[in-house]
Design a protein around this nucleic acid. Structure first.
Lengths: 352, 352
DNA sequence: CATCGCAACTGTATCGTTACAGATTTGAAG
DNA sequence: CTTCAAATCTGTAACGATACAGTTGCGATG
């Protein structure tokens, strides 16, 4: 066979299978390499040729074989969302996944969900991804001030973004909710309602946003002259029953607070239950501000003042940031903080 | 070079990279083919050789390159979860994803989330997966009696499982919640509470479980001698505001029901709001049974009687079923129905 | 009319794996 | 001492894509 045309498929590729570069090469009479480079808009391919190739590719619905690309180039076109199985409790995964996929829909990226179970295993999925080259970028949450995952990913140069910030002197992409301001504004609001003895249902101390929320809470106490009621033994990672029971005890004590800042929506539910078990009533004995990821609380307990953390938007921001990181944008430009705002109450009139 | 050893790597594969069959071949002095077959436990490889290969493979942490396998064999080791972006509202995705990944964790499968937006596009992601060979198996939900996705997947022979049943004479794997029985038991319970004028907040009519739930409801009405109050213009896919407003009108009318069966947890929230806007009270003017995917309602409105649909378990069942289908198990053995049960009320005493 | 540079295109090798068709060795049967 | 079969191992080609190092043709330059 003439070596000049060895790269040109002589037989029409078997029909029924999906089109490959070979198919296009056969149809256009070009070499496979040329077709490949034409589709990449390489500078050494003629303008008219590119046009022809693009047209044929579109006509037959050519889509590059992911395995081929991945094997040759190492590019996986995968973004990995790393989740704790326990994260489910907060019901946060749904809108997050939706937000991420909204952004990925316009790209060649697929979203792979990579779970891990115990907290001590948090590094395991990261190692897996690094070792097997399973993804081009990673999204992690439940960020800690000194997060070994961030250290490892940075060291190995795999693009990532965190949901939450770190404090380790590494500049990396992140998206976060401004929990400092949330707690600060919550205190302001409660004081405006005449509340002075405030309690905070806080995040677990090892997560970064613990200190943010505490800082905002304490700054609020100082600025608006209120007092803290201690509730440190309990945090939003505890079970609803634990939170409820601990809070009932507190509400029955001498030390009972008259204002509550809840760092989580489900925590708020447990606090309300504890409060009611102690025969106290919202708005009468106590006011409450809660961060919420959904509308449930507002509908069922409109007397709770809520600040909405839009997880879907967070998912979008995170997705944009990883992709930006993959594309080489500087990390400083891939950081965002979403500002809390109080939600208007649900309108209880007809045709709202 | 001696052709006898052409397949044996002569140079130690560059360190730092991840191990491949070549690495093991070099270390054991065997051919690449032999190593491949040894790891697959092929019958034509000696027992001792297999042992040696396995040992080395384990020692160096060999994991087959997914792109290589996929390119050569077409096996993707991917399960695709096909979701509506709108599904988020029900907050059902989180526990579903968790359940699925729990099962996949023990397998080589990864979970890829493939979304679609409009209802009319429901076929688009399926076509994409079929055309690009993106997955070995598919999980779909929001099943319809005559579901074109099921038809297409069956025709093209791609293993799948549905969350919900179909009525098209095709035997395929599914997992479903017994909505017929749910509604039936709900009616029984309401009648036992002295309620006789019952309303059903039903699923949208095009989904299969609409007729299941209606059938159970109507069978209950007959068996327990209660009457239906019409509320057909509204269903669980409508917005909370729409449901609330429509229900307020109903509750203010002559025709007001005294018992409610709610086909969804978030729908129940809207119904409660509508009821309260009509100045009616739960347990006094009206009782309610709702299907719920989480604990929120039980905590905040313990007076609602609930049947828990465990989505996490559903995720597990679905994952097991697709894998079973991929492995060639007969579809009849991959069908399961989860039975509803009333939940005990939240215990409102200390140390529950 | 060589020679050179440039534009446009192409072949080969390779990524890691597996299907397939041998190849070699060993021991037993004839 | 052949012959054969079984047991064990191996090389080659291919999956689809791309990096790299050419090759070809052609007009401009000296």
């Amino acid at each position: 066979m003439d070596s000049k045309t060895k790269n040109r498929p002589q037989t029409p590729p078997p029909d029924g299978g999906r089109p490959t570069l070979k198919t296009i090469a056969f149809m256009t009479g070009l070499g496979i390499t040329t077709v490949s480079r034409a589709l990449k808009d390489a500078p050494d391919i003629g303008a008219e040729t590119k046009e022809r190739v693009r047209l044929v590719a579109k006509q037959i619905g050519y889509q590059p074989n992911r395995a081929g690309v991945r094997l040759r180039t190492g590019k996986t076109n995968v973004i990995s969302l790393v989740l704790t199985l326990e994260e489910e409790i907060m019901g946060i995964t749904s809108p997050m996944v939706v937000g991420i996929t909204e952004i990925l829909a316009g790209t060649p990226y697929h979203l792979v969900v990579t779970p891990y179970s115990a907290v001590k295993d948090a590094l395991a999925p990261i190692r897996y991804i690094l070792d097997t080259g399973a993804a081009d970028g990673v999204i992690i949450s439940r960020t800690e001030p000194h997060d070994p995952r961030v250290a490892l990913l940075t060291e190995r140069g795999l693009p990532f973004v965190t949901h939450g910030r770190t404090e380790m002197g590494i500049v990396h992409p992140y998206h976060d909710f401004d929990n400092e301001r949330f707690a600060y504004e919550a205190v302001r609001k409660l004081v405006a309602h005449g509340r002075r003895r405030l309690v905070l249902l806080e995040p677990p101390p090892h997560l970064t946003f613990y200190s943010h929320m505490r800082a905002g809470f304490e700054r609020g106490l100082r600025d608006f002259q209120a007092d803290a009621v201690s509730f440190h033994q309990t945090n939003i990672d505890h079970s609803l029953v634990e939170i409820r029971d601990a809070f009932e005890v507190l509400m029955r004590s001498e030390d009972a607070p008259d204002g509550i800042v809840s760092g989580s929506g489900s925590g708020a539910i447990a606090l309300i239950a504890g409060l009611e078990m102690a025969k106290k009533k919202l708005t009468e004995d106590c006011d409450m501000v809660s961060k919420v990821p959904s509308d449930f609380l507002r509908w069922l307990r409109p007397e709770v003042m809520t600040m909405y953390e839009d997880i879907r938007v967070a998912g979008r921001e995170l997705a944009k940031a990883v992709i930006g990181h993959i594309d080489g944008a500087p990390a400083e430009t891939l950081q965002s903080l979403s500002q809390p705002e109080f939600q208007p109450p649900i309108i209880r009139g007809l045709r709202a």
